[in-house]
Design a protein around this nucleic acid. Sequence first.
DNA 1: CTGATGACCAAAAGCGTCTTTTGGTCATTA
DNA 2: TAATGACCAAAAGACGCTTTTGGTCATCAG
Lengths: 199, 199
Amino acid sequence: MNNATQPKSTRDAILDASDKLLAKYGYKKMSIQDLADEVGIGKGSIYLHFSSKEEIALSQIDRIIDRLKTRLITITGRSGSSAQRIAEMLVLRVIFRCESVHHYSQGINDLLSQLRPKLLERRKKYFEEEAVILAGVIAQGQRDSEFGPGDPLALARVLVTATNALLPYSLSAFELGDLKAVQAEVRAVADLLIRGLRN
Amino acid sequence: MNNATQPKSTRDAILDASDKLLAKYGYKKMSIQDLADEVGIGKGSIYLHFSSKEEIALSQIDRIIDRLKTRLITITGRSGSSAQRIAEMLVLRVIFRCESVHHYSQGINDLLSQLRPKLLERRKKYFEEEAVILAGVIAQGQRDSEFGPGDPLALARVLVTATNALLPYSLSAFELGDLKAVQAEVRAVADLLIRGLRN
DNA sequence: CTGATGACCAAAAGCGTCTTTTGGTCATTA
DNA sequence: TAATGACCAAAAGACGCTTTTGGTCATCAG
């Protein structure tokens, strides 16, 4: 119990520190010593939780997505029309990310440009995971005759691709513009897509 | 006649040279002297056609989009269903760009990262221009009762946003993957969007 | 007279060498 | 046994000098 609680808490503290320092210094200037100081541990102790500096930064982004997925899954379990849930989920995938990285001055691609290949790989994985969650709701909508026929996962992937341009990867959250406007934009895209699902 | 032919041809020659040298050296290492040598003119003559090195690179991207728009407008003038034309246009906006920059080793954002603010601004302008062309076809589809009601331009903007993630800005054409696969992906997005327009 | 040119120049970028910092490791200590 | 910070090779930064570059314009040729 104590072992299970303690390492997880230090791990999260390190990720919290990385969140703060990535925003403040960017990836390059964020040092392991800075992280250790921020957490209040020795520098070598960082390596009890993460294998490298790279892994810390990538894990911080992973964590954002994990939290997003938890939220998405909450929506899937709710009552209400599948269409409404899909719309909410599409909006959430964009807005949640924007809110999670709004304190970073660059898009994630630029922030972690030194880790580009690994970042792109994880990104692909995230998108696929999100699509799987969306597919569950699409399938349910089909069973309820709310949506027309088609492979739920393939359709879910279309939904993900269609909203990807609004994610804060290439453009920073700042460059993407006012969050309300972004939300309205996702909403418009989602509405048209859902109308397509209904056919 | 001769005056009208000559300056335009040198301007294009400069842009051709910039296309080649951007691919070979990237923006930073491409020099004005290199460009002049490639065209076979004096270095100062470059400034008879372009105000700066920046303007040359941005004009080369402008030129790609101008060519794309010409192609888009050709499709609007064709006979056939509006749905088919919209689908073709959405595919074209992605594939044409990919083909135009496939010899660049980076996405356009990274290639011209030193010109980011201006590039983003022009990008916005391109998207709006493309949306206006698409809106014409949507409006016609509505008049033909092929599509349901709604503001054609707002719907067109949704179509543009929904396909933007597949453009070679953030990811290079190489990173976007096999062109056939990209085309299939745009097509899938387009199909669902058009089903939405039909409602 | 007009337009093309390349010499010129200040600023930017590159280079080489030395110095400092850093990510990762591990011997030491509590 | 787990946390720590000294250590080290490599990377990055700093500095001063050299070279290159974007833009300008005096000059020249047609």
